[in-house]
Amino acid sequence: MSKIHVQTTINGEQVDFLCPPQQSLLEALRETLGMLGTKEGCGTGDCGACSIILNGRLVCSCLMLAAEAQGQEMTTIEGIADADGLHVLQEKFLEHAALQCGICTPGFIVAAKALLDRDPNPDERTIRYWLAGNLCRCTGYDKIVRAVQDAAQQLAYEA
């Protein structure tokens, strides 16, 4: 089967790749492009470990075809920190011990970034409902929610 040529923007960089028509975006990211920070926990859109931001929207990359990335702009976990250092969310996750095993962490940080991008001052309930698509089995979510709250405050203070 012939492969599809996809041109897309990942973390601000133009990227070209070839994919079979049935390949998921998650698989293209991980296997073709070697961007292993985005994780697979279920492959059915239930766990959120593969969360990425696509044109400002939070999506499960396991539910998207790689070919659908044509002409789109996406942010993955690899694009959250920059040369100046960690994003506030990443710092707060560390400070609050908001990760134990860490497999869900990239997805949570990407999802939380998508939330703060659209709502810089979310209340606890909003945070919990926004993150309800991301499963964490280790923390009971307490420290994750606190890390996001603290990051929002810090960003508001810096703004």
């Binding site: 606890e124 309930r125 945070i127 919990r128 409902y129 993150l131 309800a132 698509g133 991301n134 499963l135 964490c136 089995r137 009971g140 979510y141 307490d142 994750i144 929610v145 606190r146």
Partner: peptide, 10 residues
């Protein structure tokens, strides 16, 4: 399994 919106702070 429990999701964030199922739980309070613990």
């Amino acid at each position: 399994v429990p999701v964030a919106s199922d739980l309070p702070m613990i």
